[in-house]
Amino acid sequence: MIHFVLLISRQGKVRLTKWYKPYPQKERSKVIKEISTLVLSRGPKMCNFVDWHGYRVVYKRYASLYFCMCIDAGDNELETLQIIHHYVEILDRYFGNVCELDLIFNFHKAYFILDEVLIAGELQESNKKTVLRLVTTQDSLVEAAKEESSSLRSIIAQATK
């Protein structure tokens, strides 16, 4: 299973964290610090796997962002790499040529997509279109609710004028 997912920028700034095992708050910042020094120090030609306290950290760099997933030692590292790529492709299609800024200002969207890809540290959906469809449908539900409330608000505003 995947224990946690981290997105770290090249400067070591955290862009997304998702924990599938209970790590207390203090532990979390320690883990983030350790993983980012470990991963950021590795050269470009080196393999995408690092041993870390008996687990494996699988990471891949896309532009200025490092996508890291921590898995059990017995899991399939190559597949995890593919899951990372799967997630990145979905992000890319959702945002249309995704960049780090998209993930900063719409971090919650990145989380919503991740929740459609992984649950309980296991893969949920291998079909990118299905994931996109689910996320956009929920987005439109939110939009509809917002419009409804704003039209309601304008009615109230007009009535109380």
């Binding site: 964290t17 998702k18 209970p22 790590y23 207390p24 919503f112 929740d115 539900l141 609710a145 917002k146």
Partner: peptide, 16 residues
């Protein structure tokens, strides 16, 4: 739905 969506996200992020 919008409240629930952000609420659950917060739950997963801020709590363990």
């Amino acid at each position: 739905f919008p409240e629930k969506r952000i609420g659950y996200l917060g739950l997963m992020l801020l709590l363990d």
